[in-house]
Amino acid sequence: MSDSTMLLALFEDIEPAANGIERLHEMGIADDQMNVISGVPIKDTILGRPSALSHVSRIALTGAILGFLLGAFLIWGTPYLFPLHVGGQPLYPVPQFLIIVFEMTMLGLMGFAFLGMFVDSGFPSYTPKEYVREISDGKIAVLFRCPSGEERKIVDALKKLGAESVNPAEARQL
């Protein structure tokens, strides 16, 4: 996109950041052209942003199903290969099934939730990214793409609303 510029506006607090985002909307910058970067999680409704999409729950559920199947295989499937008759117990008992399947299901659920967080966020990633150190000091950054030629107007508008700085976003090594 050669006819647009990526800018990064830095705000001290939530209130001016929310106002800045509202102003960007008014100036024709769509939600999918911006991203908010912050040192603490901020509810999307507070900033007037649409809810971010996450696939972590679905990936975790897939893990839970796989874990269930693995557990079922271990407790009910393996006795076909290695029948162990102990204490007059049946080879395919229900109580033990519940225990093993529970542990494996939970391991699958949480293991995949963990992996899902990585996959959905694109972690690990060590390539240069638009970021400034002040974000982890509590500042809120709004990263957005604006049409070329309108930078001046947008920068002025955001500074009027309390933006500490609005600069071209540079991808740098984290």
Binding site: N35, P41, I42, V56, F102, G116, S121, F123, S125, K129
Partner: peptide, 29 residues
């Protein structure tokens, strides 16, 4: 160790979702 985390909306959303799943699921475990 920080695996490239910046704190974007999507990253926070994924992190909080995963943490919520863990918080509820690890109790019965």
């Amino acid at each position: 160790l920080a695996i490239g985390f910046r704190g974007t909306e999507g990253e926070w959303k994924n992190l909080k979702t995963a943490m919520n799943i863990f918080a509820f699921a690890i109790i019965p475990v």
